[in-house]
């Protein structure tokens, strides 16, 4: 595993992968949005408002997937002291926080006309809001300490503690009575949705993950280069002095 811990090798590998996944991301978004906005039916109850789902559900999936990504990265960073794992978590957090905010906002905008309310403190909405605060806490811990190693360790512990929230988010709609509906796609009896709706939803789900991969690689490269600059600056300064 430590073969990939070399930042120079990582940068080279990222440069090879990036053009491909950027192309795939554009393709996935273009076809997903085409199906979502033009080539899929309205809903028998919600009418055209159903299209909010194509933005909301992939954002919610991504928010949880990225949290899991950060948690795994934190675990690896804490135990194996893998420097790139720490950076991966740091790079992913703002993306995850943004997707969580997007899920909360689009859900709220859908809720007003459909449910009749922007917000209720039910199990699903509350647990997702808690995840949003976990993201903010993780980002804040990184910023709060001068020493990157210490900051990263504190943030990683918070990320691992917050993992317990993921099953709570997923199963909140089954364990408790909530205003939020239960799962339509990932459920035991198969999707409760016609194929024409499932297609754009799944394509956009993949598009969001590809977008995440692109941005997280960019941000990790940025972090690595930033560190290189810092080191060079320090060397230059000690040479002068």
């Amino acid at each position: 595993m430590h073969k990939f811990a070399n930042p120079a090798k990582f940068n080279r590998l990222a440069d090879i992968i990036l053009p491909w996944i950027i192309g795939l991301t554009v393709l996935a978004f273009a076809s997903g949005l085409y199906y979502a906005l033009w080539d899929s039916p309205a809903d028998y109850q919600q009418g055209e408002s159903v299209r909010m789902m194509y933005v909301h559900v992939p954002a919610a999936w991504s928010s949880m997937f990225i949290y899991l990504f950060i948690a795994v990265a934190s675990f690896v960073a804490l135990i194996w002291r893998h420097p790139l794992a720490l950076l991966a978590g740091k790079a992913a957090a703002p993306i995850g926080a943004t997707f969580t905010a997007l899920a909360l906002i689009t859900g709220s905008l859908w809720g007003k006309p459909m449910w009749g309310t922007y917000w209720q403190w039910d199990g699903r909405m509350t647990s997702v809001l808690v995840m949003f605060f976990l993201y903010l806490g993780y980002i804040a811990l990184w910023e709060a300490m001068e020493d990157d190693e210490k900051a990263g360790r504190a943030a990683s512990i918070l990320a691992l503690v917050g993992v317990v929230n993921l099953p709570i988010i997923k199963f909140s709609v089954e364990w408790w009575n909530t205003l939020h509906q239960s799962a339509s796609v990932m459920r035991m009896d198969g999707p409760a949705m016609p194929t024409e709706m499932l297609k754009p939803l799944l394509i956009l789900g993949i598009a969001y993950q590809l977008y995440f991969a692109v941005v997280v690689l960019w941000r990790m490269k940025l972090e690595i280069n930033q560190r290189k600059i810092d080191v060079m600056r320090r060397i230059a300064m000690s040479d002068e002095g």
Partner: peptide, 19 residues
Amino acid sequence: TVLAKHDENYAAPGTMPKD
């Protein structure tokens, strides 16, 4: 206060959901 609770079923207009 009355709020509508949407269920997990989606279907095209004129069709019935799976469940």
